[in-house]
Design a binder for these strands. Sequence first.
DNA 1: GTTATTGCAAAGAATTTGCATAATC
DNA 2: GATTATGCAAATTCTTTGCAATAAC
Lengths: 154, 154
Amino acid sequence: MRSLKITLPQRNTRQRDVILQELCRLTSHPTATDLYDIVRRRLPRISLGTVYRNLDQLAEAGMIRRLEAGGGQARFDGNIEPHHHVRCIHCGRVGDVHDVPTLPGAGDVAAADGYEIISCRVEFLGVCPECREEPASGGGRDRVDRGGRMSRDG
Amino acid sequence: MRSLKITLPQRNTRQRDVILQELCRLTSHPTATDLYDIVRRRLPRISLGTVYRNLDQLAEAGMIRRLEAGGGQARFDGNIEPHHHVRCIHCGRVGDVHDVPTLPGAGDVAAADGYEIISCRVEFLGVCPECREEPASGGGRDRVDRGGRMSRDG
DNA sequence: GTTATTGCAAAGAATTTGCATAATC
DNA sequence: GATTATGCAAATTCTTTGCAATAAC
């Protein structure tokens, strides 16, 4: 078994610091460009490339989670506690879900296929509270992660 | 609640027919370009755009599943029976997993967030049998869906 | 002072789209 | 024959990368 290489950042930069701070402050699972817009309020000269690079590094170091919620843009989560997500098929918003039965975890082997399982992610598709009332409008909360494509997945 | 619009294809074309046939024949969860290469053996003049368009339509009509396995390219599955997937973090291969505990399903409301749940997908990350023996080589089976980016997700 | 990291801009990969042509109903 | 679907190519979108300048150690 090859070990997964974990590349830790080697220098502390203000850019990475602000990116991590802002991501951890949010519960909205922003995309890279969402975060770019937010971080730019504090670091107007930061580039989108730097945001991507740092999000990669932080995810690889296990300090944040990358969601790839399905539907194009990756989303990021500053909360690394084990939990799952629910994505609104109307407005694209992503919420947290904690009460999910325990699923096979690290070390288990999926009998039928012989895969050694390392981790698992669950994504629910549903309709968020706002879209349940006011379909497809996107609502009016102070969130940064509205928009995003609707799923066409089953 | 707005109803989800389902756009059924309105005419039967040989292209769509072959795409569906070939996808249902495979258990390898091919990407759009994988399938393009396969279908082209029977329809040499088909275009990649047509493959994308038809995969979209078929997924929207519920005749196939779109996986968006996380990590770039979407993958497609001709098997629409409820089941979940496991993706090899070394070679990118995607397998099926059937024995997963029942999770909240259609109609349930995720208490903590108020989302109405419509469906759910579970993706395991793991190491496939071949990569467990011979790390990261990609093995030598007759599959079309080798390759694909490694996950950096937790 | 050395070297990782940045900003910028250009490249890349995956997917979508406009439009004339071809095929289905 | 009317209109949908195709093939082709260009456009979009999201992400990555090369490189000189900058900042961290």
